[in-house]
Amino acid sequence: MEDNQGILWEVFLQPKAGRPFKHVGSLHAYDKTMAMESARDLYTRRGEGNGIWIVKAEDIVASQPEDEASFFEPANDKVYRHPTFYTMPEGAKNI
């Protein structure tokens, strides 16, 4: 017979309505119902959550560290995407 500790799931928690979901940790479970309930039992013991997402760890597509330079550095010199790039005439409000 097979024996193992189930598959790995990643848990995301929304602390309050309206807030973004944030990764809080992982757990093992054999099916998604169990994974959801274990996430509740494990990661919301102190009332930390209002919503839970779970996803199989193997289904997550992650960027590779070796792509770091080509992925993220090109954004560094595009300062015109930030509001502080622009000068406003003295006294202008709420633009």
């Binding site: 017979m1 097979e2 024996d3 193992n4 500790q5 189930g6 054999y30 099916d31 169990m34």
Partner: peptide, 15 residues
């Protein structure tokens, strides 16, 4: 706990 884990695996597969 082995029989319980085995049952959970078998059930998940059936689903």
């Amino acid at each position: 706990g082995q029989w319980v884990r085995e049952a959970a695996i078998a059930y998940a597969k059936k689903q």
